[in-house]
Write a protein that binds this DNA or RNA. Structure first.
Lengths: 209, 209
DNA sequence: AGAAATAATCAACACGATGTACATTATCTG
DNA sequence: CAGATAATGTACATCGTGTTGATTATTTCT
């Protein structure tokens, strides 16, 4: 209804193009409204017809994307009550999440990168804390943990988001499914066992002495 | 020799104080040279007598601190050739590293936080990649890994730095030794086993059916 | 203690970005 | 085609930057 005018659609597209093109070259804070409008070939005043400032511009894209992630968790019922179901229950959700990252790769690799928005990184990290915490709550009594649960959540959420960000930014040739598998396996078993190295290393150690 | 003049020392101290005080309140990019000099009660021109701009100011502190970390790895000889030595060899180094973080907590919690410098976060992450990679190289043939080694490095470096940043920022009541232990154990065994939950969960699962 | 060195201050400047306003032109919708 | 509205162009006050040159204050060294 309200957003049918073609001029608006065109202008907003030009701005988006110009903005992400600039974000791939320099820091968000170093980008000026002037920069954006010059590259988009529109009048500077026009920018302010659509956005309050450059922060508002970024925010709109961020929220748009974040909705997609929340939708996944909202739809997901937590069924895990057994450690053996852990993987089969969790892998599909992680795969779904990875697919959204893949779809939005062009924007997300920039927003989550060092030239992007650190607060969005933190927001996404909290998303994984939520994802992780929900399962753990069903599995066991948190008070029995050897280490503070907060640190474990920080450990895993940063690991997951770190891998995903790296994957996006370096165009690693792995499908969303493969990355999801790697993450779930490593969370569950730890780096050495998940990668299949533990047994190999142990064999080498035995031979060595 | 060159830096004995008391006026310089005093001025630089005032600037440092004011700067980190501001960094605890708002984003680095939002901080202006004006802000800093007003809070430090010095003339704005004086700032430019000592620093090129605010980036140069931050850079000086960053390099100062980073030297300390590099010194640790440079002094460390890698002796690990056996998986069983893994923990006893690595824990002391990690503990040393954690102590530096602890000493510089006031600055680092801000620089590594969302209001700080994302590039420094990345630089510190690379430091942990170096730390991690060095050991792995001695342990095994990387080509046999089930997942791309890059992703494993991203996983672990982000996990480690994420936990440390969280620890600093939330004033968690754990000593450097305790955090170092948590990190090494989790890297080695994975979250569930390291926290002592695997056996408990498995017992619960058996009872449940 | 006094002279020379130099750090800090003050005022001024050009430059560039911001956000707003208003009159005008161009384009779209029904 | 006519009315609505998006986009343009121009102007303006405000603020931060980085630099300059003259002046004052403090420190160092003999």
């Amino acid at each position: 209804m309200t957003k049918t005018d073609r001029r608006i659609i065109r202008t907003k597209n030009e701005i988006k193009q110009a903005f992400f093109s600039l974000l791939s070259e320099k820091n968000f804070e170093a980008i000026t409204v002037r920069n954006i409008t010059e590259r988009a070939n529109i009048n500077r005043g026009t920018f302010y017809l659509h956005y309050v400032d450059k922060y508002n511009l970024l925010e709109q894209y961020e929220n748009e994307i974040f909705e997609k992630f929340n939708a996944i968790l909202d739809e997901t019922t937590i069924l895990v009550i057994d450690i053996n179901q852990f993987k089969q229950e969790r892998l599909p959700v992680m795969t779904q999440i990875l697919h959204v990252f893949y779809e939005e790769a062009d924007s997300l690799k920039l927003i989550l990168g060092p030239n992007g928005d650190p607060f969005y990184y933190e927001k996404m990290r909290q998303f994984f804390v939520r994802y992780f915490n929900a399962y753990l709550g069903n599995l066991t009594d948190k008070s029995k943990w050897k280490f503070p649960i907060e640190l474990t959540l920080a450990y895993n959420s940063n690991a997951i988001l770190g891998v995903i960000t790296y994957w996006l930014q370096h165009d690693i040739q792995q499908s969303p499914e493969e990355v999801a598998t790697m993450l779930i396996e490593t969370i569950l078993k730890g780096t050495l066992e998940a990668s299949g190295m533990r047994s190999i290393i142990e064999k080498e150690s035995e031979l060595g002495r």
